[in-house]
Amino acid sequence: MNKKTLCVEDLRKRILSQDIAPGSDLDEVSLSQRYGISRTPLREILHRLAGDGYVRLEENRGAKVVSMDLSVMRVFFQTAPLVYSSVARQAAENRTGRQLDDLKETQAAFTIAAKARETEQAALLNHRFHEIIGEMAQNPYLFASLKRMLIDHTRLSQTFFRPHSEADVGRVSKAIDQHDAMISAIEAREPSLAIDLTLQHWDLSRDQIENYVRPDPLPLDVISMKDHKNAV
């Protein structure tokens, strides 16, 4: 693998795992030094990442990792179930045997990582799991939308794959089981069942993902402006 390919793959991984935070500036000098490539091929890489939805290029301001502000998240939560369900239906109708084998292999690796609480690896393998289903659909329009959506979903899913309670652990275990059921439905070419399982899978993670963008409640001892009108 050459330096440019390594740079692309590593930057994708770092963005998806939030090693590079949403909205961060990407300094060309630092990146050139880190990956041992000159500015010209680096700019080609940044343009490629921008085309894939990982990076935003701003005139005279360089490159930034795509943000996850409230307006973006609102559209994400509205769009995700529509895209996932459409992809699942067409995957069940159009999948190939080779793709099914790839999906099962990815699921096996995902199961190991999720059970071991390897947050980053589980999130990246979950990303690949849903990407393969997108490839199965054989719909370039849907696949483009899915790939862009998966960037944010994978970044948000860091919280889902970092369980803090027994209930959280149970949700991760259920997600593994749902993946297995989705594979079975796709293998059996049952699009209606694939859609139903996919929407259940989305519902399972949605609340946890929403916690990422929902602010923590204020502490109970915060001064009430209503009761303390003269407070400054």
Score class of each variant (00 low, 15 high):
31 L>F: 05
117 R>Q: 15
89 R>C: 03
150 L>Q: 01
185 A>G: 08
219 P>Q: 14
4 K>N: 15
61 R>S: 10
42 L>M: 04
44 E>M: 13
144 A>G: 01
198 T>M: 12
60 N>Y: 07
145 S>V: 00
47 H>W: 11
79 T>D: 08
227 D>Y: 13
128 R>I: 02
107 Q>H: 15
210 E>V: 14
70 L>H: 14
121 Q>W: 08
90 Q>K: 15
61 R>F: 10
208 Q>V: 07
95 R>H: 09
67 S>H: 02
81 P>W: 09
19 D>H: 12
20 I>Y: 11
133 I>L: 13
189 R>S: 13
194 A>T: 09
32 S>G: 04
181 A>E: 15
207 D>H: 08
26 L>C: 07
170 G>M: 09
15 I>T: 12
214 R>Q: 00
228 H>G: 02
187 E>Y: 07
12 R>L: 03
162 R>G: 02
154 T>N: 13
98 R>K: 13
61 R>P: 06
156 L>K: 06
18 Q>K: 14
123 A>C: 12
124 L>C: 04
140 P>E: 14
50 A>R: 03
78 Q>F: 13
109 A>M: 02
127 H>Y: 05
83 V>G: 02
104 K>Q: 15
161 F>L: 04
39 R>W: 05
31 L>Y: 07
163 P>L: 04
172 V>I: 13
111 T>P: 00
134 G>Q: 12
57 L>V: 11
162 R>T: 06
47 H>G: 03
224 S>R: 09
133 I>P: 09
95 R>V: 07
26 L>K: 09
153 H>Q: 06
126 N>V: 08
176 I>G: 12
135 E>I: 00
190 E>N: 15
227 D>P: 00
52 D>K: 01
221 D>R: 11
2 N>C: 00
160 F>V: 04
214 R>N: 11
129 F>G: 05
163 P>H: 04
116 A>P: 01
114 A>E: 01
131 E>L: 09
225 M>S: 10
193 L>C: 12
40 T>K: 11
3 K>E: 02
59 E>I: 09
120 E>P: 00
66 V>N: 01
207 D>Q: 08
43 R>D: 01
85 S>R: 13
137 A>L: 03
1 M>L: 12
101 D>W: 06
58 E>Y: 14
16 L>S: 12
2 N>G: 05
11 L>V: 12
101 D>L: 11
153 H>E: 09
51 G>I: 15
231 A>N: 14
74 R>T: 08
51 G>E: 15
2 N>T: 02
193 L>T: 09
50 A>M: 06
106 T>Q: 15
